[in-house]
């Protein structure tokens, strides 16, 4: 693996970046090397300190006006220059959609491999990074390792628990570079309707599928969500076909791992299951006794969600008071 040394972490999302440090920390320890966080933008002093508290030995800061607002191309240019200059052996990137785009292109510029959406990472006997991730719509787990360096991997949010912050010493290193204007111009950004808590962070998620007949019927869900202080989720057809929501849980949507998942009127197609299989406790309500969702459930309730959900709300109110 020649001259290359160091484990790097980068994400445009500060929370995810801290999770990447938690992922990178044992890798750096095993390889007896430094763990660095990369910060791109301006005014980074406070952030740098925070990252050091969360496990970074070094923070590489690139301050450039073109990096103040996030753009894949400027981040890509900055990361490419940094990596060519400093030769890290591992680069961990947050698997947001932009992050996955960025990582693929960085790997191309650095002429190396990249494994996406990793859920486990370790260093093998020979010192190569080895990763595990879900493929085939959740039907299989593939273990892969690298043949070239730097070894690039992307990691979804909520895969690793942030380390407890504590006072540590670390270096903040400022690097200046010139960056070209990006080729793709961002004309407009429109926020999706946001709920207060992100579903990825929710402790309890009540998920609805096509068994829910009308959008208004989600009022049952809302009541249950209020009672449990949980969040509402949904399958893809409710977003894509019925346009009731702008996002969904699943392989091509949000990956959640709440303490409690309650799935109502959901068949349990593998693409949905891929997004919720890491939930701690799974409850499924479906009127079809053969529904596939029951194969991945801890508690199986065969019946009509329109009868069972209100009864659960009633019972919970009794219990919680």
């Amino acid at each position: 693996m020649g001259e290359k040394k160091g484990v790097w972490a980068f994400s445009e999302n500060m929370e995810l970046l801290k999770e990447l440090l938690a992922c990178g920390s044992p890798l750096a320890a095993k390889l007896d090397t430094e763990l660095s966080a990369v910060l791109l933008g301006g005014d980074m002093k406070e952030k740098a300190n925070e990252l050091i508290k969360h496990g970074a030995d070094r923070v590489l800061i690139v301050d450039n006006p073109n990096l103040r607002a996030f753009h894949i191309e400027t981040c890509l240019a900055a990361l490419t220059k940094l990596a060519k200059e400093k030769n890290p052996q591992i680069i961990l990137i947050g698997a947001t959609k932009n992050g996955k785009d960025l990582a693929s292109r960085l790997a191309t510029r650095l002429q190396t491999g990249c494994t996406p959406d990793c859920s486990q990472l370790f260093v093998d006997e020979e010192g190569w990074l080895t990763t595990k991730r879900i493929v085939f719509s959740g039907n299989a787990i593939v273990t892969a390792s690298y043949l070239k360096t730097p070894q690039i991997a992307t990691i979804p949010s909520r895969t690793f628990e942030k380390l407890e912050p504590h006072e540590r010493t670390g270096n903040a290193e400022k690097i200046s570079m010139s960056l070209e204007e990006p080729k793709v111009k961002i004309m407009k950004i429109e926020k999706m309707e946001a709920t207060d808590v992100k579903i990825e962070d929710a402790k309890i998620v009540i998920c609805g599928g096509r068994g829910v007949e009308k959008k208004e019927d989600f009022s049952f869900f809302k009541e249950l969500a209020r009672t449990l202080q949980g969040q509402i989720g949904n399958t893809r057809p409710l977003a894509e076909d019925r346009k009731w929501f702008s996002s969904w849980v699943g392989l091509s949507g949000k990956k959640i791992k709440p303490a409690l998942y309650i799935g109502c009127g959901i068949s349990g197609m593998i693409q949905h299951v891929a997004g919720m299989r890491d939930s701690q406790v799974v409850v499924a309500i479906n009127k079809d006794p053969e529904a596939a969702i029951f194969e991945v459930a801890d508690y199986i309730l065969v019946g009509d969600l329109y009868e069972i959900l209100p009864a659960i709300v009633q019972e919970l109110k009794k219990t919680l008071n």
């Binding site: 080895t130 299989a140 787990i141 273990t143 892969a144 690298y146 194969e295 459930a297 801890d298 508690y299």
Partner: peptide, 16 residues
Amino acid sequence: GVRIRDVTVPQVGRKK
């Protein structure tokens, strides 16, 4: 740059 070492089927240990 990457090689596949193994493909396994995930086990879901649910109570059912």
